[in-house]
């Protein structure tokens, strides 16, 4: 029996918002440590890695490891039926072929349950090597989303270059070119407004703007986003999910011809 109860159904709604652009379906791997998801988009250019720790749930029970193949379009439709302040419970019998979502209104006067068929998805897991990144940038998530949106109007690629002074985002195309430079903030009163750069060596990499924009669908989950870069390895874009976990997006760089 698997049962996970979350008081804030908005977390699960936002997680679906954050992944449904990139993935049509994904396997939720549930164990007693929590729920993990790892899936590449169809083009194998980007990967989503999500982790929700069991201790972040109000109630979590997983008698035996269970992998639930979810159609994310259907799951999104079901989660749209939950109000933000509803309590959501996901449950499934061992080796079940359906999963049930129960939404309870705060005053318990309305309880809804939705049963969704599970899919048999082939489990293709990638080994992601632990990496010491040359540059790790932390900036306000809203700022990053704004930069990706503004620059994607100029070209299909964004060049991110990182030095100890700060980070520069550039794009060029038919209408012209654009550069956005963010300097390291010196003393900001609020942590989530800071721009910080931890640099071992300068890095400049090129990425497809449409994937970056897809990643920023996770902006509602966290005030801060972390970008990790090293020469010629995939970019990591990480958003924390409250105290319960994180979403990490990996994006293969574009190689200059």
């Amino acid at each position: 029996m698997f049962e996970a109860r979350l008081v804030q159904s908005s977390i699960l709604k936002k997680v679906l918002e954050a992944i449904k652009d990139l993935l049509n379906e994904a396997t939720f791997d549930c164990s007693d440590s929590g729920i993990q998801l790892q899936a590449m988009d169809n083009s194998h250019v980007s990967l989503v890695s999500m982790n929700l720790r069991s201790d972040g749930f109000d109630k979590y029970r997983c008698d035996r490891n269970i992998s639930m193949g979810m159609n994310l379009g259907s799951m999104t439709k079901i989660l749209k039926c939950a109000a933000n302040e509803d309590v959501v419970t996901m449950k499934a019998q061992d080796n079940a072929d359906t999963v049930t979502f129960v939404f309870e209104s705060p005053n318990q006067e309305k309880v809804s349950d939705y049963e969704m068929k599970l899919m048999n998805l082939d489990q293709e897991h990638l080994g992601i090597p632990e990496t010491e990144y040359a540059c790790v940038v932390r900036l306000p998530a809203g700022e990053f989303a704004r930069i990706c949106r503004d620059l994607s109007q100029f070209g299909e690629s964004v060049v991110i270059s990182c030095t100890k002074e700060g980070v520069k985002f550039s794009s060029a195309g038919d209408i012209g070119s654009a550069n956005i430079k963010l300097a390291q903030t010196s003393n900001v009163d609020k942590e989530e407004l800071a721009v910080t750069v931890e640099m071992q060596e300068p890095v400049t990499l090129t990425f497809a703007s449409r994937y970056l924009n897809s990643f920023t669908k996770a902006t509602s989950l966290s005030n801060v986003v972390q970008l990790s870069m090293s020469p010629d390895v995939p970019l990591v874009v990480e958003y924390r999910i409250g105290e319960i976990g994180h979403i990490r997006y990996y994006l293969a760089p574009k190689i200059e011809d």
């Binding site: 590449m40 995939p234 293969a252 574009k254 190689i255 011809d257």
Partner: peptide, 14 residues
């Protein structure tokens, strides 16, 4: 122009 890489050339399938 720049060619889009794929993750398969960076991460191995377990």
């Amino acid at each position: 122009g720049a060619t889009q890489g794929r993750l398969d050339s960076f991460f191995k399938v377990l």
